[in-house]
């Protein structure tokens, strides 16, 4: 990566975080990993590929809700951002099939719903 100039930093800050498109974030800190986030992450990657879904699977740090790890945050156009907790392989697949493909929320694993992106 090239050395940055002060201007580069300004423009990168102005551009902000790229949150376009549909994405899924998996909490991959020690608390998440211990609860099985690694498996959830690879399941999401494989199953999304299998289903040809246009969704970015990303990693992130600890959100603080360690009791509900592994945590998976889902951003999907037309729906509020949802944080699913205690996600296992089956729930991960449900998230892809229901939340991303069918645009309906998955029962019983929702731990937080964020409305900020909804106008």
């Amino acid at each position: 990566m090239a050395k940055l100039t002060p201007k580069d930093i300004d423009s990168k800050i102005a551009a902000g975080l790229d949150e376009s498109g549909d994405w899924i974030k998996v909490g991959m800190s020690t608390c998440g990993m211990a609860a099985g986030a690694g498996e959830v992450f690879s399941t999401l990657q494989q199953e999304a590929k299998k289903r040809n879904l246009e969704v970015r699977i990303k990693k992130c740090g600890c959100q603080g809700m360690c009791y509900a790890e592994p945590l998976v945050e889902v951003h999907c156009a037309g729906l509020p951002d949802v944080v699913y907790g205690r996600v296992d392989k089956e729930t991960a697949i449900k998230i892809l099939e229901k939340h991303i493909s069918a645009k309906t929320l998955v029962n019983d694993n929702i731990y937080e719903v964020r409305t900020r992106r909804q106008a």
């Binding site: 990168k12 975080l17 790229d18 990303k58 990693k59 992130c60 740090g61 603080g64 945050e73």
Partner: peptide, 17 residues
Amino acid sequence: NCGVIDPESIDEYIACR
């Protein structure tokens, strides 16, 4: 930024100021 950005990406950190 915890739980918001990818901790292994400096670009995402810069994008969050």
